[in-house]
């Protein structure tokens, strides 16, 4: 199988062709490992879990951003493969790109649980009360593995490097939609910005390439709706009712545990 890889060594960039043995059941990552081990030790690419849950091996495969570890050769339906580093990032070496901006954008939207009473997060004796239906409102957006494919696909990131990008915005919405979170107003101030939600023009490419079905485009449109409601109708809260902590059940009502089915010998 012919593989053409976009190489870069810090100074110059070039395309390099390799001829590799491949089975249809191989993934692109298998092919890359084979190249590195048998043909060219200098090839640089990231990898870790090899099962599509860590997000290391994002790259552009035949023109479309994808995870190398979960793209099988048979799915590609082409004679040759063309691999490039992710678009819209600074390339460091070969297929390795600089994710510093990406992680900073994510951090800038305050992607953590915020409560009016922060003590509830740290020292409460029980968990928050969240029903399975409430879980459904945000779990999809929590699937994000931070691979960065969405930013590579996004046509807006290509022309506005300051745009927060689908990943960060979707994560902001993940917390806004979470009934346990009360940081709505804090985040709205960050998101309601010309480089925030309003820079998104809904090309949907982020959702199209997302390897985990996070659907960032959906999250961003919902976010716009929330921002509009907040600004135009002066709604001070997210449309989600905050969850409450479960109270510890009174011990008197608790049933007695059944006797153990094993014999304790010696010991305390």
């Amino acid at each position: 199988m012919k593989v053409r890889i976009r190489r870069f060594d810090g100074q110059k960039a070039w395309w390099q062709d390799y001829e590799v043995d491949a089975k249809p059941s191989d993934t692109v990552l298998d092919i890359l490992n084979r190249i590195r081990e048998k043909h060219d030790h200098t090839l640089a690419f990231r990898q870790s879990c090899q099962m599509g849950s860590c997000g290391s091996c994002g790259m552009v495969i035949n023109g479309l951003p994808a995870l190398a570890c979960q793209t099988r050769i048979s799915e590609l339906k082409t004679e040759s493969i063309r691999l490039e580093p992710l678009y819209n990032y600074k390339v460091i070496k070969d297929l390795v790109v600089d994710l510093t901006d990406f992680v900073n954008k994510h951090r800038s939207v305050k992607p953590w649980m915020i409560r009016k009473n922060p003590q509830e997060l740290e020292e409460a004796p029980m968990e928050f009360k969240v029903t399975p239906d409430q879980n459904l409102t945000f779990v999809q957006f929590d699937y994000c593995i931070m691979c960065g494919l969405c930013l590579a696909a996004c046509p807006t990131v290509a022309i506005d490097p300051l745009f927060l990008g689908p990943q960060a915005l979707a994560q902001a919405y993940r917390y806004i939609a979470d009934p346990r979170d009360e940081g709505f107003e804090e985040r709205i101030e960050i998101l309601d910005d010309s480089h925030g939600v309003w820079r998104c023009h809904f090309a949907g490419a982020c959702s199209y390439v997302c390897p985990k079905g996070v659907d960032p485009a959906k999250a961003i449109q919902y976010l716009k709706k929330e921002v509009l409601k907040y600004r135009l109708l002066h709604k001070k809260k997210a449309s989600v009712k905050p969850a409450e902590l479960i109270q510890k059940p009174p011990p008197a009502n608790a049933p007695k545990p059944p006797p153990f089915d094993f014999k304790i010998e010696g010991g305390e």
């Binding site: 459904l136 945000f138 699937y143 659907d215 485009a217 959906k218 449109q221 709706k225």
Partner: peptide, 21 residues
Amino acid sequence: EAFGMLLGKPVLPEYPYTPTS
């Protein structure tokens, strides 16, 4: 964007993932 229509509700994504939006 303003009314959140045509997007679908948040769901548990099923493989192969087809985004509802």
